[in-house]
Design a protein around this nucleic acid. Structure first.
Length: 780
RNA sequence: GCGGGUGUGGCGGAACGGUAGACGCAGCGGACUCAAAAUCCGCCGAAAGCAAUUUCAUGUCGGUUCGAGUCCGACCACCCGCACCA
């Protein structure tokens, strides 16, 4: 149970219930639901991430990471809600305001802990090429997120000072096209300027309050402030350029500063045109005339030859990049580097309901790791949520401890881990869930990697990337032997449903809403009108969720399972509808009746020969084995279900056939197969049917090997061949399997309808695909 | 802006380049019943025809092929991810 996190804390604040109580009650409810569904889970391995028995090992892993140099402490910018006194995730900032308090969100710098995921950037980027059972889409999303780029880092000297400003660029070839240098509002140099320039301070403050919210990005308005500072060009020292603070420069990417080349970067172009800065083209498109080539509003980003650029003139873009980097390195002002979009993973959260970060702050010794023998650092139970901010911070005694190093009074860290940490290694813990260490080597070597991982596409980036990083880090400190945690990945689609709002604008659960025949909707009890919202992913906050318990209560678990699997391919999003549930229930009843009809028919030796109905049924049975097996292996559960319906229909046909030797045996075989192939979907019914057919067997279907098709029965007695004339179907003929071509063609031409279509035409080509199709190509 | 995906009956969806619409849901007609429920049988893309059958049809337009829902190109619509990433 991934059990730590914000929802529990919100429940605590809204309903005055302790997060632990709320969480364990939810777990209890969900456990009952999973058990009622009859899922084959190994409950001996159950645990919840909020149990000290779990998170103590997470704390140990963290300390191992710390020792291995995989943890850093850095200042970082966060979204700060001044009313709630807490840090907000980006998703919790709505239109620049805190989602709960509605207060304008501020940017604030906090000292946070970071896991060094960027040390593994190249490996994390490369390895998915070999994960051939991962969806291509997810591999691409991971690669884009990691975002490798090659370029140069170089230092610009400030005119009249010893200081420099570092920039990162992927286009060192365009350095001669520079017309300004721009820094992010959060850049240290911007702070220095602000200290003596109130107008600059106001500009920076405005940028920070607006942040990089969607509103600013959408309007795309580029805003800048000229600091009055100037920097020297690395290649032409006597020329200087203005230094601007610009809202479109991101502190988090590269160095937080760029050199502006309006001719060959659209953003720089927009900025230059707005503030009247120079635009010098330095890349000449193929075929363009250097004397007349100019740029108006569109930057040129294509290939070409460098000009207006001193020693780079005449080189192609790629060669110029190399030459520029070489020169920068020779001058000692820069070098070629690989840059990553991926940033280190900030794991500190100023929250109560999470795993405590096991370090202690001592005025004398600095940051001291909690010694292993003092783990776990337990969350205190006696906390209150009557004040904004982190309850751990307000707790009267919890954070006061003695320094493990010097023994003097010190403070516990009150931050907890991002809950993504909890889910980044649980799969390894499952291998040895009760071990006194995070995981035992023998167990993880036996089980890992996970053969088949299943999850929603919403986890395509963060959860999977973090787990991949954790696995590599755990390998480096000797816990596991594998590099990648998940050998196969299947991403299931989301289940969507309409959402409903009542008269008071509160969200309503679907079961509270009654649909009227005229299409309108009303509250089931009060009769008040209900606004029907869009069909969207089920979420607790919008209450558009369905409790499978209702179907289980009405029809039973097998019907619920059968129905859920029967309609949609599982990788596709679907809209939940119960319209097929009754049909699924009918089918479960029908399967039972098919078995009941065999009561009194004893299991005898397999007959030597079968009549035609028996042979037909046996072929259907064995074709079904092959088809269902293939469908299940490909996660096409809906197709597997369809094949089982076909088998049921074939059994019904056989029931109506005239009695013949061996037919009863064939029916028993078919019903047994139906139960066994259906057992993953409807296990309880399968066991009941099987026990009825073989009361003395003493085995469960679940214990039996998967059925295997007899190859001889997969070959049809006769095949239907489609006959086309010029690609249009004119008839179908029945022939023996693998019939000789001349016989097939003769029979095809003998068909009256085919003959009619061929009348008066000359056949110029005969296409024959054995057992499938004949096509006559005619002329005239 | 960049990247990816999807588009097939009234609905959910099947379909190694080879009979488009398997299977289910809904619907219509019938049997059984005093009646209902349950069950069973039949029909069920569109148009024409008494019928055999014919024509059209997998978002649009084109191409490759004996043959295209499937492969290729362009476009349209919707969905998802990332996004002033230098």
């Amino acid at each position: 149970w991934d059990a730590f996190g914000l929802p529990a804390e919100n429940a605590a604040r809204e309903r005055r219930v302790h997060p632990a109580k709320w969480t364990y009650e939810n777990i209890a409810n969900m456990r009952v639901e999973l058990q009622r569904m009859g899922l084959s889970l190994e409950w001996e391995r159950e645990f919840a991430t909020c149990q000290p028995e779990y998170y103590r090992h997470q704390q140990k892993l963290f300390l191992d990471f710390l020792k291995a140099g995989l943890v850093e402490r850095k200042e970082s910018w966060v979204n700060w809600d001044p009313v709630d006194g807490t840090v907000l995730a980006n998703e919790q900032v709505i239109d620049g305001k805190g989602w709960r308090s509605g207060a304008p969100v501020e940017k604030k710098q906090l000292s946070q802990r970071f896991l060094s995921i960027t040390k593994y950037a190249q490996e994390l980027l490369d390895a998915p090429d070999k994960l051939d059972r991962w969806p291509e889409r997810v591999r691409l999303m991971q690669a884009n997120w990691i975002g490798r780029s090659e370029g140069a880092r170089l230092a610009f000297s400030l005119d009249g000072s010893d200081e420099t400003v570092e920039v990162y660029t992927t286009r060192p070839d365009t350095l001669f096209g520079m017309s300004f240098l721009a820094i992010a509002p959060e850049h240290p140099l911007a702070a220095a300027v602000s200290a003596r320039d109130p107008a600059a301070e106001r500009f920076v403050a405005e940028c920070c309050s607006r942040g990089t919210s969607e509103a600013t990005i959408e309007t795309g308005e580029k805003l800048g402030y000229d600091t009055g500072l100037r920097v020297k060009h690395p290649f032409i020292p006597d020329v200087t350029y203005p230094v601007w603070i610009a809202n479109f420069v991101l502190m988090e990417y590269g160095t937080g500063a760029i050199f502006g080349c309006p001719g060959h970067d659209q953003r720089d172009m927009d900025f230059a045109r707005k503030y009247g800065l120079d635009v010098t083209p330095v890349v000449l498109p193929p075929g363009a005339d250097p004397a007349t080539f100019s740029l108006a509003k569109e930057a040129y980003v294509g290939p070409g030859t460098i000009f207006n650029s001193g020693f780079l003139d005449g080189l192609e873009v790629d060669a110029a990049k190399r030459a520029a980097i070489e020169k920068l390195e020779k001058l000692g002002v820069g070098q070629g580097i690989v840059n990553w979009r991926l940033r280190d993973w900030g794991v500190s959260r100023q929250r109560y309901w999470g795993c405590p970060i096991p370090v202690i702050h001592c005025d004398a010794c600095g940051v001291v790791p909690v010694p292993d023998d003092q783990l776990p650092v337990r969350l205190p139970d006696d906390v209150t949520f009557d004040r904004p901010g982190n309850p751990l911070d307000h707790h009267p005694t919890w954070k006061h401890v003695d320094c493990p190093a010097c023994g003097k009074p010190a403070r516990r860290e009150t931050d907890t881990f991002d809950t993504f940490v909890d889910s980044s290694w649980y799969f390894a813990r499952f291998c040895s869930p009760t071990a006194g260490v995070p995981m035992t080597k023998a167990a993880v070597d036996h089980w890992m990697p996970v053969d088949q991982y299943i999850g929603g596409i919403e986890h395509a980036i963060l959860h999977l990337l973090y787990s991949r990083f954790f696995t590599r880090a755990m390998k480096d400190i000797g816990h596991v032997s594998v590099n990648e945690p998940f050998a196969g990945l299947f991403t299931q689609g989301m289940v969507n449903h309409e959402s409903y709002r009542g008269a008071d604008n509160r969200w309503l659960y679907p079961e509270e809403v009654e649909k009227r025949t005229d299409g309108s909707a009303a509250h089931r009890e009060t009769g008040e009108p209900v606004t029907v919202g869009s069909v969207e992913a089920m979420s607790k906050s919008k209450r558009n969720t369905i409790d499978p318990g209702a179907i289980i209560a009405r029809y039973g678990a097998d019907t619920a399972r059968w129905f859920i699997l029967s309609d949609n391919p599982p990788d596709r999003d679907m809209e939940w509808t119960e319209s097929g549930a009754a049909g699924a229930f009918r089918f479960t009843q029908r399967v039972f009746r098919l078995a009941e009809a065999l009561d009194g028919v004893r299991a005898e030796m397999m007959p030597d020969a079968f009549g035609s109905a028996g042979r037909t049924l046996r072929r259907a049975t064995h074709r079904c084995i092959a088809a269902v097996t293939e469908a299940l292996e490909g996660f096409a559960f809906n197709v597997a279900v369809a094949r089982l319906y076909e088998l049921a229909n074939a059994i019904t046909d056989a029931e109506r056939a005239a009695p013949e030797p061996g037919l009863a045996w064939a029916r028993r075989e078919a019903v047994e197969t139906l139960a066994r192939l259906g057992s993953p979907m409807m296990p309880h019914l399968a066991e009941e049917v099987y026990a009825r057919l073989f009361p003395d067997n003493g085995h469960l279907v679940a214990e039996l090997a998967w059925p295997e098709a007899e190859p001889a029965l997969l070959v049809a007695e006769s095949v239907t061949i489609a006959v086309q004339v010029m690609g249009k179907l004119r008839a179908t003929i029945e022939v023996a399997p693998n019939a000789p071509e001349d016989i097939v063609l003769a029979e095809a031409m003998a068909d009256p309808n085919v003959a009619k279509a061929l009348e008066g035409k000359r056949v110029v080509k005969r296409v024959h695909v054995p057992n499938r199709i004949v096509n006559f190509v005619v002329a005239g």
